[in-house]
Amino acid sequence: MIVAEQKSFDEISKMVESFDKVLILGCNECVTVCLAGGEKEVGVLATSLRLLRKQGDRPITTLEETVTRQCEWEYLDQIEKLAEEADCIISMACGVGVQYVAERFPDKWVIPALDTKCAGGSVKHGQWEERCGMCGECILHKTGGICPVARCSKRILNGPCGGSQNGKCEVKDVDCIWDQIYKRMMALGRMDQLLEIEPEKNWSKARDGGPRKLVREDVMIG
């Protein structure tokens, strides 16, 4: 899933300073699961903004809604009326959702309430970690199902680097993922596979090649 984190309240409140009626829009998918932008967070942000603004001479009206997915037109169609009523929309979705909202409601000012962090998952309640760097050409079958692109600090494809110490990465306080790749490959009896040198990756398939676009003509109708 996409992992995101709420911006500081101070930052959000400054972005809505000049608005009097805002629609706070949550998303029921990834950001609900990572506790950043679901129905509950919508409620807390709305109440917080009202509490803050009530203390000044410019109270704020909040409209609250959470849609199934902000990254799909059909769910945004459902909030057309609400969007019309508001001066601006605070999207509590990932960057994709925010952009869908902006595109769907071209005359509305849209504000992101979250910082979108990575494609990852929850490793325990309250902790999320990056797992995939969306490189466009997966090599997990060569690395025992552990991704060096997203999880090695240097993105090394033939690791580990010389800085790997006692299973820890030299760059930051994370496990050296190449250490884990080796341990797993060893356990699976596939060490020979690691002896093969992995050639340079075709990064043009990743973001480096520009924005990506996928087309499936076989499912397109009319």
């Binding site: 500081s8 309240f9 101070d10 807390v44 917080s48 509490l51 803050l52 203390q55």
Partner: peptide, 8 residues
């Protein structure tokens, strides 16, 4: 934390 943030 939230109450500190909103000034209450």
């Amino acid at each position: 934390k939230v109450l500190d943030d909103v000034g209450i």
